[in-house]
Nucleic acid binder design. Structure first.
Lengths: 193, 193
DNA sequence: GTATAAACCAAACGGTCGTTTGTTTTTTTA
DNA sequence: TAAAAAAACAAACGACCGTTTGGTTTATAC
């Protein structure tokens, strides 16, 4: 039976996920420094000291949340892009997927945008590397666009990502959808083909 | 003589400015929650308790820094815009001035972009109001642009401000100037006339 | 030159921080 | 069912937090 297969496996770090979820939620809402281990432990319904059985330090916990955030948003973007063929449609799908995660769906993704690498000095290089790995996707998507040769694709990518991440500040649910925002931004930033 | 005029005036909050400068510098570099009153007092070369002679609380100090930041960046942008006539040139000058303050010149301006209103709950409405007052300038500048009637000026403004503020994350001195970034962004975001 | 007020110091308040240690409970293994 | 391992508790550590209090210094005003 499936039952025995499940039961046989040692329960390994079952509540690690609870901690991770709680940390993602609080880091996204309050920021790194405004969130205490005690806050996280309470949200995960355990005592503060127990967190340290699963994570070596608060910074290590942030790194785990951040890495998971990058992995999730990257997977969501990759899936969205895979459905499209035209370069512009691919970029627009990527922007919409990015916004979906950032605005609605994922506390993890919000941590990636909200927490700055310098907030946790010792893991800053890791955070920067994770983020660059993700943003490389947009470099490739922009590279595939047919653009007038005097367009600076590097600056276009930076402008686009800045505009997308800035949406977290002003976005309120109801008025627009991630997809509609992506369409507007792309219409403004990338001259129609 | 001017000497007597100066000497007659009671020395009024002379070192308030030292505290404000130190706070702006530290808030801009480390964020609000990662900066302690003790850090600020040490940078201003006084004892922690003395700060409270000049400011009622840490949040009140943040509000003073934030307000000064908005005032300074607004003055700089206004001065830059006043030199130009054409709508597009005016917007570009505003973007360049905004970036100058954000990237190079002013710790105060960086606080306005870095610190989120929710970092200090009791003064959040004041911070939001200050920021909206400032950003209204960009609404007006965008409104004056000659654009195709199906362009969403609201989204264009949000995209532009997001792109500008995002520059704080990736900008390093030397490669580009605020003016060159402003030119690139405007070229990308606002279709040429 | 003395009263007055501004500015700052010195010291501490209660509380919270990230983290550690030793023990107990719970689950898995044999 | 007993031994072993995993997971959580209970309690505290020293350090730092924002802030308050009362006294001391310094400059102004009469």
């Amino acid at each position: 039976m499936g039952k025995s297969a499940e039961a046989r496996a040692p329960r390994q770090d079952n509540r690690r996920l609870d901690i991770l979820d709680a940390a993602a939620r609080l880091f996204a809402r309050q920021g790194y420094h405004a969130t205490s281990i005690r806050d996280i432990a309470a949200a995960a319904e355990m005592l503060p000291g127990s967190v340290y059985y699963h994570f070596a330090s608060k910074e290590a916990l942030l790194l785990a949340v951040y890495a998971e955030g990058v992995a999730r948003i990257a997977a969501h973007v990759d899936a969205a892009v895979a459905n499209k063929r035209a370069p512009r449609a691919r970029l627009q799908a990527a922007c919409a997927a990015h916004l979906e995660m950032l605005l609605d769906r994922s506390d993890y993704a919000q941590v990636v945008v909200r927490v700055l690498p310098l907030d946790a000095e010792s893991i800053a290089p890791s955070l920067i590397a994770l983020r660059e790995d993700y943003e490389r996707r947009f470099r490739d998507l922009v590279a595939a666009l047919p653009l007038s040769p005097r367009t600076d694709r590097h600056m276009l990518r930076l402008a686009l990502l800045g505009a997308l991440n800035g949406a977290k500040v002003w976005y309120r649910t109801g008025r627009q959808t991630p997809a509609s925002i992506a369409r507007s931004f792309l219409q403004a930033i990338v001259p129609a083909a």
